[in-house]
C-alpha cells in the first residue's frame, strides 16, 4: 500500500542500493545454532570474490574464536541462500553462485550444537 502522505508521489530511492557501497555488495552470514554470535553478520564484499574466499578468508575472522569452529567439516556444511538449501561452487564468484546484494548465507554444521549443546 502506498504511504498516506501530505505530498503527492511519496517515493524515494532506497538508502541502501548496491551502488552506494563502492563496488561491494552486502552479504549477511549466519551460523545456525551458534547464537553466541548474537546476530548474523554483515560484510561488504566484491561480487567477483570466489565463494571459497568467503569461506577461507572472511568467515574465520568472524566465527573463528568459537570452540566449535576448528571442528567444522567443511564438506559436510549445509548451506542456505536466502532461505533455500543450496550447494555453493567454491571456485565461482559470489555473483555466479547467486549471492545478490543483501543476500543471506546461512551455514548449518551437523553435529555441532554450540557451547554445551545450548545453541550458543
Amino acid at each position: 500500500m502506498p504511504v498516506k502522505a501530505i505530498r503527492e508521489n511519496y517515493a524515494f530511492e532506497p538508502k541502501d542500493v548496491e551502488k552506494n557501497f563502492h563496488g561491494n555488495r552486502i552479504v549477511y552470514v549466519g551460523w545456525d545454532h551458534h547464537l553466541m554470535f548474537c546476530a548474523p553478520v554483515a560484510f561488504p564484499l566484491p561480487p567477483d570474490m570466489p565463494f571459497g574466499a568467503l569461506v577461507e578468508q572472511v568467515i574465520p575472522g568472524a566465527f573463528g574464536m568459537h570452540p566449535d569452529f576448528p571442528q567444522i567439516q567443511w564438506n559436510a556444511v549445509q548451506w542456505r541462500l536466502d532461505g533455500e538449501p543450496f550447494t555453493p561452487d567454491m571456485q565461482k564468484s559470489l555473483d555466479a553462485n547467486g549471492v545478490r546484494h543483501k543476500s543471506v548465507v546461512r551455514m548449518f554444521t551437523p553435529g555441532l550444537n554450540g557451547i554445551g549443546g545450548s545453541g550458543s
Binding site: 549466519g30 545456525d32 546476530a39 536466502d82 545478490r100 543471506v104 550444537n113 554450540g114 545453541g119
Partner: peptide
Amino acid sequence: DPTLTSYRSSVHNGERYH
C-alpha cells in the same frame, strides 16, 4: 527454536529487506 535466528524478509521493487 531459540537456537535459531528469526529471519524474515521482503522484496520491494527488486530490493531485498530483512
